[in-house]
Design a protein around this nucleic acid. Sequence first.
DNA 1: ACGAACCATTCCACTTGTGGCATCCTAATT
DNA 2: AATTAGGATGCCACAAGTGGAATGGTTCGT
Lengths: 204, 204
Amino acid sequence: MKLEHILLGVLLEHPSTGYELKKFLDSYGRFLRSNTQMSQVYRSLGTMEKQALVAHSVDPRPGAQDAKTYRVTDEGATVFLDWLTGPYHPASRFQDPELGARLAFAGFMSAEQLLRILDVEIQTRQDEIARYRYRDRRETWAPTIPFDAELAESVGERMHTKGANAMDAHVAFLVELRRELLDGKLSSRSLTAVPGDMSADNTR
Amino acid sequence: MKLEHILLGVLLEHPSTGYELKKFLDSYGRFLRSNTQMSQVYRSLGTMEKQALVAHSVDPRPGAQDAKTYRVTDEGATVFLDWLTGPYHPASRFQDPELGARLAFAGFMSAEQLLRILDVEIQTRQDEIARYRYRDRRETWAPTIPFDAELAESVGERMHTKGANAMDAHVAFLVELRRELLDGKLSSRSLTAVPGDMSADNTR
DNA sequence: ACGAACCATTCCACTTGTGGCATCCTAATT
DNA sequence: AATTAGGATGCCACAAGTGGAATGGTTCGT
């Protein structure tokens, strides 16, 4: 998840100043990216301008410092769309923003492109469930410093259950979203061809 | 979440080679950190050794390349515990590994220390719910490139619901864990003093 | 006998992110 | 009158992560 892509996506929706982008990232965008620094936003904007992905116009604020309003160039739009609709590689942590960021910009995709992403994600996570759900979670070892084995086990046990539930909810959500997409419930621009089905069953 | 801390925690449980650490991060540790590179592990190990947080002994593999088994020094253990039990600052994304990593090493904490972390996290997320749950999620704007507003809205709506549910599940899990900790259900080493209660109610 | 997968380490150029600081102005609060 | 909060941009040194590739051995399946 590059900051660059988020910035491009937001700017495509609505030209903004660096300050506004930062505010967005701290409020609505807080689920797309953690703890973003001002300096990072401005530097990203600067390097993107050098690469001609964005351009700014000066927006004079009488009395106060001028604001620079950035908008995306054609080249920037191309770069953004290449990222958004290009090959999707799921992160190893399913909670990572890789998927969420793409879904946040679903409006720039076609139903087919969205479907491709969903399929990759669902397949990946179902494989993970099959591989890791019933693993051995801990061997015994000799801890070097004071260690409350009982506490570790209780917390570990609950964490595992929570993680498993979250993963199941994640997959169920995606399968449901996929279903609705295929049924044309998400948009009137429906799919041209309807591909095969994918099971929602991850229990065994 | 620094790789350093995860590595120290794992090594405190069980001295390992760089290769083994990488394997751990790719399997059991996959929920603590995404897509970790080999080079990153070895470099981390290298700099930690320079800072005397870890030390290695050579473990000859007849015929093949020697393996270096790393273990944590006293200083390394101090650094690890300072991080683990020091002030906890929640990330803006609740799905980020900051909390999970600490809980994964719960065995190195006292019940009081674990309680402090839980309290900070619960408070933070309840505040977030109060602040962001019923926000306006989208203004209308003029998109620069083709945009399926209908698809964006459907997906956005479902994402929001999913996010809200996940956040609620997260808080509920923590409140339950806290409850059990106070009731002494997690470890026989119980708390010395029992502090006030914290409500599990985030609906309004 | 071959390739694939696994064990094990290391280097390198590059890109990103962190955290803090400096500067200037306005508007509201105390 | 002074402080604080917010709007706005930018610079800097440094820390951390990315994404390979190179090297050289072993074991296992076909």
